[in-house]
Each structure stands twice: as structure tokens, then as C-alpha cells.
């Protein structure tokens, strides 16, 4: 029994040690890893500046924070949520798809489709008008052809010919 306890104890030690070594060997997130996430976030202080290119000290600290979270094993989504919760949703490159924010995504396509529909209707009415105009022109020329005098003249010409 004592032996078993010793084996168990040593196994746990080895496991913890292996895990520790494995953790120590996990590479520190590179600048590129940090920038992948930072480029999707906006500086909470400067106007319209992505976090990966903002030169201020505050942004350098926020990039370090991303590095720290990545080192702790956080996912991209978790880090973005963390920033949005702590500094407001304005740090996200786009408004989250919820509530009033849906308008930002819905209004442009709806307005564009409405414009396309108006244009389509206009085309149809123009086409109809064009057809009507050509028919009117045809009708205008028809009486000349059915003019009794002209018909008679044509007939006489045929007889003489």
C-alpha cells in the first residue's frame, strides 16, 4: 500500500512537472499573434485608430494585455469580449449584431434594393411610354395610307400601269 502511495505521489509529481515544463515551453505570443487581435479592436481613447497601429502608450499597454491573455490561453473571442466589456463596444471594429445595431447592417441593403426597385419601375414605365409613342406614330401614319383619295389615286395608277 505504502508502495502504491509512493508510486502515485511520484506520478503526480511527474505529471505536474511535465505540465509545468510544457507550460514553460509554450512560446510567448509573438507580436504577430497580438496584432491579429489588436487589428480587430479600436483604440478606446484615440478616434478611429486600430489598436495594432496606435502609437500611444495606452495602446501599447492594451497590446501587452492582449499578449498576457493569449499567454493565459484565452481565445480571440474571449479577448474581444473582455475588451468590449471593460472599455465599451466602441472598441469593436463593427457594432455587435444586436438591438439597434442591426440597423447598421439592414438599412444600406434595404435602401439599395428600394433604389433598384424604383429604377426598375421607371424602366418599365419608360418602356411602356416608348411603346405607346411608337403606336401613336403608327396611327398617325395610318390615315394617310387609308385616305380615300390616295387609295383612289393608287388604284388609278395601277390601272394605267
Amino acid at each position: 500500500m505504502k508502495r502504491l502511495i509512493w508510486i502515485g505521489f511520484i506520478s503526480i509529481l511527474l505529471l505536474v512537472g511535465w505540465a509545468g515544463v510544457a507550460h514553460a515551453q509554450q512560446p510567448t505570443p509573438s507580436d504577430d499573434d497580438v496584432n491579429v487581435i489588436a487589428s480587430q479592436l479600436f483604440c478606446p481613447v484615440c478616434e478611429n485608430t486600430p489598436l495594432d497601429v496606435c502609437p500611444t502608450q495606452a495602446c501599447a499597454q492594451w497590446r501587452d494585455e492582449i499578449r498576457l491573455r493569449l499567454a493565459q490561453g484565452w481565445s480571440e473571442a474571449q479577448i474581444k469580449n473582455y475588451f468590449a466589456e471593460n472599455y465599451g463596444i466602441r472598441v469593436l471594429a463593427e457594432p455587435p449584431r444586436q438591438g439597434l445595431n442591426w440597423l447598421v447592417y439592414i438599412v444600406p441593403p434595404v435602401a439599395f434594393l428600394a433604389g433598384a426597385y424604383i429604377l426598375f419601375r421607371a424602366f418599365r414605365s419608360w418602356r411602356a411610354l416608348a411603346t405607346q409613342l411608337s403606336e401613336e406614330e403608327a396611327q398617325k401614319s395610318a390615315p394617310e395610307e387609308t385616305d380615300p383619295y390616295l387609295n383612289r389615286l393608287e388604284e388609278e395608277l395601277k390601272k394605267r400601269g
Binding site: F42, N48, I89, R90, V91, L92, A93, P95, G99, L100
Partner: peptide
């Protein structure tokens, strides 16, 4: 972003991806 701030008091960013 101005409409959002007026309506909800919350600032949002409409960035390049949009």
C-alpha cells in the same frame, strides 16, 4: 455612431470591415 449615441448613449465604431 451618432444615432447610436443619441438613442442609447452608447458609442459604437463602424470600421473598415463594414
Amino acid at each position: 455612431p451618432l444615432i447610436s449615441e443619441l438613442a442609447t448613449g452608447q458609442k459604437v465604431t463602424v470600421g473598415p470591415p463594414f
